[in-house]
Structures are given as C-alpha cells and as structure tokens.
Nucleic acid binder design. Structure first.
Lengths: 117, 117
DNA sequence: TTGACATATTCCTATATCGGTATATGATTT
DNA sequence: AAATCATATACCGATATAGGAATATGTCAA
C-alpha cells in the first residue's frame, strides 16, 4: 500500500503548502484561475491541478463565467482539521497557561477548605 | 518531483490518520510503544515507524526506561496547524454566526444614525 | 472561420510512501 | 550464557504523487 491519496481527505489535500496558499487567497473572495496564477507565481497547469484536488475534497467550489472558472472557498471543509487540532491548543496557549494558574489557586483554596481532616 | 516527505513538516506528518490517533493517545500521557500497539491494534513495526516520523517533526519525544521507550506528546509542534486553520473558523462557527447578527444590528442602527443625508 | 484567450488534461519521470515480514539491537531475567 | 522481552531497522512491492511540457477543450472576438 502507498500513501493515502491527496484527495483522500482535507488533511491530505492541505498538507501541500501551495494548496494552503490557494485557499488563503480565496479567503479574500472568489477568483478566476489566472488571478491565482498571477498572485502565486505558479504555472497555470499546476494551479489547475491543485484546484482539482481542493475541489475533490470539497474545499473549493467552481462557477463558470464565460471562458473563466471562478473558484471560491468552502470553509466548512476545513472544520475537521480545526476540530482535531483545537484539542491541543491548551499545550501552548498563553490563555490556557493563565487558566492553569486560576485552577491552581482554586485547588489551594479548596485544600484549606477540606472539612474532614 | 514527488510529494513532500511525511517528515517535511507537521502538516504532512499528521495527514496520516494513524499518526493522529497515536498523538491522541499520547495526549493522555507518556506511553511505551507496546501500549500504543495494544491500544491501537497496529503491528509493532508500523507503530515504531509512525513514531519515528512524529519524532522527526518534533511532535513527540522519547525517553528510555530499561528496554522500553517512553513516548510523550510535544504539543506546540501542532501550533502551526492550529494557527493556519483558526483563520477559517468564522466560516462555520455558531459563535461567529451570532457575531454576524450583532454586527448587522450595529450596522442597521448606524444607518439610522447617519447625520449627513 | 480564424485566431486569441482561459482553463483542463495528458504524458513523463523521480521519488517517497505504506504495510508486511524478517531480522537486528539492546536490556533483562533465569 | 541463554532465553526472553521491547523496540528499531531493512527489504520488498504497489502506488500516488508533483512539476514540466505539450496539447486538448471550449469560449469569445475580429
């Protein structure tokens, strides 16, 4: 068996940095392919290929306008990634550090409060 | 050129579902390899190989205890993923939907407030 | 209808993966 | 010292990439 297809899920699709860049640009609004080509400095066929992968995992959607194809972001496709990684946020976030402090204080208080000792 | 190495960065390392499972187990605390083998029902060599990838991108760290190797999570290695994907959170979050409502209300109010018309 | 434009697809090659199996390495127990 | 345990590595085969270049498809303009 080989590595999972890039189209297997959003995790795989988005592991490629240039595909993340494409999504970042599309976050600014709908764009025709050539805009992406210009903005990212990639060759046109590669952009089309990346867009195909992103479309297959549902991260983008297309619309036709004359000879152009307008691509737009479909954000919710990225939710599984966010859902997974957000569980680890406490391991680096300042805010959670401070939460730790608060919890520690509560614990101290409680220890002074224990009745049966 | 081929696809980027799984060890190229955390995005690539974590695209493999079993590696995410390993991290999820390690989130519960340090574990020797055989614990992971049992808990995940994978073959021992595959687990060792996945752990190697995770170690190379800094997502886990090892410690020796006799003949065992104790692996532990290194959470902050996942921060780049969180940082990237959190910018898209507004595209599906309920909370942000409600923020939209509030902003809309403010806008209405302001329109009724405009002085020069 | 011919040419220009916008995008998609095809073909090529190099490479890195994944699982499976066998084996190597090193520590511990008997 | 030998057997056992815990883990890592090597080897194999199948497969799916990614970029580059060429070309196909379809639309609009002259």
């Amino acid at each position: 068996m080989a590595r999972a297809a890039t189209t297997a899920d959003t995790f795989n699709a988005v592991a490629e940095p240039r595909r993340r860049l494409i999504l970042d640009v599309l976050a600014g609004g709908e764009r025709p392919v050539n805009d992406l080509v210009r903005e990212l400095g990639l060759a046109q066929p590669q952009v089309s290929k990346h867009l195909r992968v992103l479309r297959e995992v549902g991260a983008v959607e297309v619309r036709e306008r004359g000879r152009q194809r307008l691509y737009r972001l479909n954000g919710p496709a990225l939710k599984p990634i966010h859902d997974w990684v957000k569980n680890y946020e406490s391991l680096w976030s300042e805010r959670f550090d401070q939460l730790d402090v608060v919890l520690e204080e509560l614990k101290q208080k409680e220890e002074g409060d224990v009745s049966d000792e």
